[in-house]
Structure formats: C-alpha cells, structure tokens
Nucleic acid binder design. Sequence first.
DNA 1: GTTTACCTTATAGTAACTTCAGGCTTGGCC
DNA 2: GGCCAAGCCTGAAGTTACTATAAGGTAAAC
Lengths: 154, 154
Amino acid sequence: MLIGQLARQAGCEVETIRYYEHEGLLSAPERTAAGYRSYRSEHLGELNFILHCRSLDMSLAEVRILAGFRSDPQQDCAGINDLIDRHLETVHQQVESLQLLEQQLLALRERCPASRDAAHCGILRTLVDAAQGEACACHTPFGDGTRHGHTEST
Amino acid sequence: MLIGQLARQAGCEVETIRYYEHEGLLSAPERTAAGYRSYRSEHLGELNFILHCRSLDMSLAEVRILAGFRSDPQQDCAGINDLIDRHLETVHQQVESLQLLEQQLLALRERCPASRDAAHCGILRTLVDAAQGEACACHTPFGDGTRHGHTEST
DNA sequence: GTTTACCTTATAGTAACTTCAGGCTTGGCC
DNA sequence: GGCCAAGCCTGAAGTTACTATAAGGTAAAC
C-alpha cells in the first residue's frame, strides 16, 4: 500500500503521514525499489490510533506517551488515567473559559446594535474606555476583579 | 517610562511589547540617548487596547482592524459589528466543539476507573479498538456517524 | 512518447509569542 | 575607579501541528 492509499483509508493528508513518521510517531515502512513508502495493515492501525487521539484533541506529546503504552502493555496503566484526567481538566477549563468569553462578547455586541460612525460606536468606545482603565461592558459584569477575564490554562 | 515599567503597568511581558511594535500594532516610541524605548501614557492606552482585545481572544489581525477604527473614527462602524459577530460565531462553535469533546473524554475515562496494567486498561483498549474500526466509547454515543467527532471551524 | 497521477526530499510558512545568544547601559556599593 | 546585577538592545531560532511549495523522479495508461 502506497502513501496515497493509506491516506485515503485513514482519512488524512499524505503530508500528515510523512510528518508523523518524521516525528517518530508512525513507524517507518519498507520502501519499494523506487524509494516509495510501502505500508501494511499494522501501519493503518498505528495511524488510526494517532488520528483518533488527535480527534480527542490530544497533543502529539500525549499521543506519543499513549503509543508507548500501546507498544509495551506490561506497564501500569495509572499513567494513562493520569494523562486522560489531566487532558480532561484542560479541556474543561477551555470550555469554561470560552463560555465566559462568549458572554463577554455578547455583552460587547449589545453596545452597538445599529451601524453608525466609529466615533460613536459603542463597541469601539467600550474597548477604548477599557484600555483607559474604565469598567468595560464585556469584562465587568462577569469578571472577578482580575485585569483580563479570559485566561488560558498553562 | 522604560519598557519594563510599561510591561508592569500593562501586565504583560517586555517581549510581548517589542513583538507588538515589530508587528506594527504598537507605535514606536522615542528613544533615549542610549537607545532605550521611552514610552508615554498614550502608549499605555494603545497597549491596553491591544491586550484587552486579546483577552477577548481576538487575533492580532482582528486587533489591527479595530485599531484602525480607533485611530480613524470617521469610518462607518458596521465593520466593527461584523468583526465582533464573526468572532462571536467562531467562539460559539469552539464552545460547542469543546463541550462535545469533554463528553467524549468523560466517556473514555469511565472505561478505566481503577489502575491495572496497560494490557487490560479499558482506555487504551478503547483507543486501540477504535483504531481497528470498532465502535468506540468516546465517539459513538455522541458522534453523528462521521469518522472523527471533533471538528475545528475553518 | 507523452500525459497524468503519484511519489521523493528539503525548505519555508502559519499564529503569537518565547527563548536564546551576545552585548551595551545604568545604578548601587566598596 | 572598579565591580556586579538588573535591565535594556538586536536578531535569530524555537514552539505546535501541520500545510504548502519547489524541483524533481516513477509508473501506468493511452
């Protein structure tokens, strides 16, 4: 199976496959006489594993760890649970952060229901005032007093 | 005011300020005899405007547009409304996508409440089976039949 | 024999910074 | 005056997970 066929079967781009191989996530296949990558079914399983993890928004670093467990199943799987728990926590924080953000944007949008000139635009005024340290429609009603309401988890 | 002071007042990193100047978002200040950047209060306002927009998760490209309206308030502000509306739509889709993802991860996490060896770990088994084309605990109950449930808006 | 589809590598670009390397300036202390 | 630490400077490279491009080789059909 050549790379194009593998890509079609897995539903990803050819370049992505080469990238995963380059990153050491996908094991390197044999080559044909012409130097073409020649895949077998276990490669499809490997690739699908990676793509499935990615569809759960795991980083390639996380996938790398899970792939380690996959290839060495003697290990204690507590590490898997931890990884999923941490990832879940990250995603949960992202959800909360984005929901707050959505409320902030809606509040901002309320400021300018009709189109006028920018000098009188409530949205822009709010943004400019906020930069001056004024209470802002977007952050004040929801924020907890910290300077910028929307924080990424690190 | 030197760059370190400006950074402390605005609550950002020195490098971020230099980056914004480099990107043409923040106007370049005067320099001292030694070549140090010397800021005045309008720079703080400018910087806070950028940081506030960024705290609303706007891209620098979006901030650039809003900064244009800010410096030229004669323009029709319909563009501002459009920008906020589009951004709101993007954020809303992100929220929905991440909420789905969270459900998927919770379903996956359910598979392995206790720690055993990876060979019998329900999470890993689910991930591996999914790669084989089996129905997976994470995607099946929520997915709509498409291969990978979590899609980014483009 | 040529067109078409497919494959190869290496390199650069994306977003929004962050980090690093290597070097100058300022201010305090002795 | 000498020394040191903190703070400033520039320019380049690193980060993530690809995506795109350039320039070219190969295989099969027509």
